[in-house]
Nucleic acid binder design. Structure first.
Lengths: 220, 220
DNA sequence: TAATCAATCGCACGAATGTGGTATAATGCT
DNA sequence: AGCATTATACCACATTCGTGCGATTGATTA
């Protein structure tokens, strides 16, 4: 009973990592003026946040500005997550380029906000990420989804036949011509011919070339 | 002036592809009872939506249930996008597994809602996607971001030295030992030795093996 | 100081590769 | 019926590869 009450009532412990003093003042005040959350620590560098922490008072949510001096802000995400995966990290930045966004998400960020976000959006994002959500600006969410569609494999085929594709797979697996011949009960010469044709179709002249092409262009 | 007014006032043209009649009735009524949007067509199969369309009356937004009979709902996304990339597709489904989600996003979906979403969420999502956003449920957004962190390369290294890594890159590029030697002004024998060491460290015995390992385990 | 490691260079040789041919039977298309 | 494609098979040969061995130099470390 007491425990339950504590969990419900304990404010969300928010840390802020941000080098712009004016902005960090604004945000920390905003948070502290909101019931249900407290901005307990403010750092201007990632290093400080990692050094100055004690295991008892881990943050629930970290608002992190990437692109500030000192070590790479992106790396900071990983280091914080290393301390505890329970720390939810929300990026708060002016950068909206795909590279930073992608790197931040890959490193384990749970949210991504641009600095032009409204105070209401920032507050709701803190609540949302605490509840297991992934707050983002509309623009950011759109970029994230577009990244997926850019993953879409073009599946080049180069007009390979089924047999050629089969043998190509064995080449990628590292088998020699003789091993391939044995495996699919063909003559060494037949395998040799197929490989010749594969090389012609893919315009390569070596095993390394063909394997690299297979992976880079998602053949097979 | 007149044009501007038309753009502002023309309702969002929404299509619904959904085989559950009760649910599709509910949703289409919900949309038609909301000012600013109209549900002009309802299909129970993807095929119908692709056949029965005329270039003049393209939808702005399609609410698509994946996992209904007929062709794969995922493929439907691609086909609709092929007709026009301006069509914004929002998935509306009961499935929340990573595979369906991933495939849908890769195929070009601009939003992903679960069927337990509130009517308000559905309406706001239609507006949001029209404005260039990417509406998702909290749970879905979280899954999407988690997918990114699962991409994170482990960067196996196998204790390769800088020189070895350099030569490994040339192998991947398809150069022969002699070509590598010429390129970095080394003796053929030195390159040979480096490659021997690389093979030992990576536990491979052929060029195909080493290249495959490089790509599968993100070495270099 | 001794030891270890990385980078360099060398030789030898069997195994495998890449490439130039040619040829036959089966299948499908038009 | 004729043509194209595919899969099959063979030969030959120069090139390249993989791997066994050993050796010297310089830098770093114990």
């Amino acid at each position: 009973m007491k425990r339950e009450k504590k969990i419900q009532n304990s404010p969300i412990n928010v840390w802020l990592i941000e080098d712009n003093l004016a902005y960090s003042n604004t945000i920390s005040k905003l948070i502290n003026n909101t019931s249900g959350m407290k901005c307990l620590k403010v750092f201007s560098m990632c290093e400080d946040s990692i050094k100055n922490f004690s295991p008892e008072e881990l943050p629930d949510v970290v608002l992190l500005d990437i692109g500030l001096p000192g070590i790479n802000g992106i790396q900071c995400i990983g280091k914080l997550k290393q301390i505890s995966t329970d720390i939810q990290i929300v990026i708060l930045t002016v950068y909206d380029d795909n590279d930073k966004l992608f790197d931040a998400l890959c490193s384990g960020a749970s949210g991504y906000l641009l600095k032009d976000s409204s105070p209401e959006k920032i507050i709701s994002s803190i609540k949302e990420v605490k509840m297991g959500g992934a707050p983002m600006n509309m623009l950011i969410a759109n970029k994230v989804l577009k990244m997926f569609s850019s993953f879409k494999q073009t599946k080049s085929d180069y007009g390979l036949t089924d047999r050629e594709r089969e043998i190509l797979q064995y080449i990628v697996d590292g088998l020699t011509k003789q091993q391939i011949a044995d495996k699919i009960f063909l003559s060494f010469h037949t395998v040799n011919t197929h490989i010749k044709n594969i090389y012609n179709k893919l315009h390569v002249h070596s095993r390394s070339g063909v394997v690299t092409k297979v992976f880079k262009e998602n053949i097979i």
